[in-house]
Simulated assay, not measured.
Amino acid sequence: MDELARRQLASIAEVIAVTGSAAIPVWLRGGWAMDFHLGSVTRPHVDVDWYCWRGDAERLATLLLARDWRPDPRMPVEQQLDLYAGDVEVSFAYLGRDRAGRPTVGAGSWAGTPLPAGMLDAPPGRIGALTVPTISVAAQIEFKQMYPIWMPERQRRPKDADDLARLRATVPPPPEG
């Protein structure tokens, strides 16, 4: 594991400590969610991606900024919360809720769009002694599959195809009918 990955893991531990003591729910998403599902660091990561409820974002930002995290001036806070912890990039995509309380996209042009059923109900992932809430494997697979369709300008990268293969290998086959 390289030094950036160690610093990213330290930032994940810090987020879990801060949000745990403040009772702010968060869920790891993206490549790190996959790694926590698999139980090890599988590849280098550019950043650390999370979900948080839109209503918790301001309080979360206040808590992390008080710990010397700094905002990413390139990203509008209306879309998501983007921060730096040293040289580690961290983003918190916002979650909303529909009338039935199900999670939706919480901001931006896709606000209100339903997110995969059960996405927030996955068991926590673990790397070493660190246990972290993550989005479900089914949601991780759906997002990796659909990004090139939802955003045609974003072609599937080789790492996305590798991630899909790793995730699919952990899903039991459907029962034979």
Score class of each variant (00 low, 15 high):
G31I: 05
D163P: 00
T42W: 00
P116W: 01
T19S: 01
A13I: 10
M119E: 01
D160W: 02
D49H: 04
E89L: 14
A122D: 13
T113Y: 09
M34I: 10
E176K: 13
R29I: 08
E142G: 01
R154K: 15
H37W: 10
G30P: 00
S11A: 15
R7E: 15
L81M: 10
R126V: 08
A22M: 07
A117E: 12
D56G: 09
E89W: 14
P124F: 02
K159N: 13
I135V: 15
P174L: 12
P103G: 03
G118R: 11
M146K: 15
L64S: 05
G86M: 14
L81A: 04
L4F: 11
G96Q: 00
S109G: 13
P124Q: 03
R74L: 12
A93C: 02
V41C: 14
D162G: 05
A22V: 09
R156L: 11
E176M: 12
D49M: 07
W32D: 03
H45V: 07
R166L: 08
E142K: 01
L81Y: 09
R154F: 14
G101P: 11
S11I: 03
P124W: 03
F92W: 07
G31M: 06
G125M: 05
P133G: 05
P173G: 09
V77K: 09
P103I: 02
D2G: 15
P116M: 06
A85Y: 13
V18I: 06
L28W: 00
L28C: 02
W110L: 04
A139K: 01
A10F: 06
G128Q: 13
S11D: 09
G96V: 00
A107N: 07
D49T: 04
L83R: 09
G108D: 07
Q79W: 06
T134S: 08
E176H: 08
G128T: 11
L130S: 01
I12C: 08
H45K: 11
Q8H: 13
L115S: 00
L9T: 03
R126Q: 15
R126M: 07
W150E: 05
G101H: 11
R54M: 05
T170I: 02
A17S: 12
A61Q: 14
D98S: 10
P124M: 02
A129I: 06
S91G: 14
D47V: 08
R7L: 14
L83Q: 12
I16E: 13
L95V: 03
G118T: 08
L64H: 04
R168K: 08
A57E: 02
L164G: 03
K144Q: 03
A117G: 07
Y84P: 10
A117L: 11
W27R: 02
R99S: 14
G112I: 07
G39R: 09
V105Q: 07
E142C: 02
P124H: 01
W27N: 02
R7F: 11
G177K: 07
D121A: 08
K159A: 10
A100V: 09
W32R: 01
Y147E: 14
L4G: 06
V48Q: 07
A5W: 10
E142N: 01
R67C: 12
Q140C: 08
W53D: 09
A61P: 05
A169W: 00
M119S: 05
D87S: 15
G30H: 00
A5S: 15
T62D: 15
T42M: 02
Q155T: 13
G101N: 12
V132W: 01
V48C: 13
G118V: 03
A61Y: 09
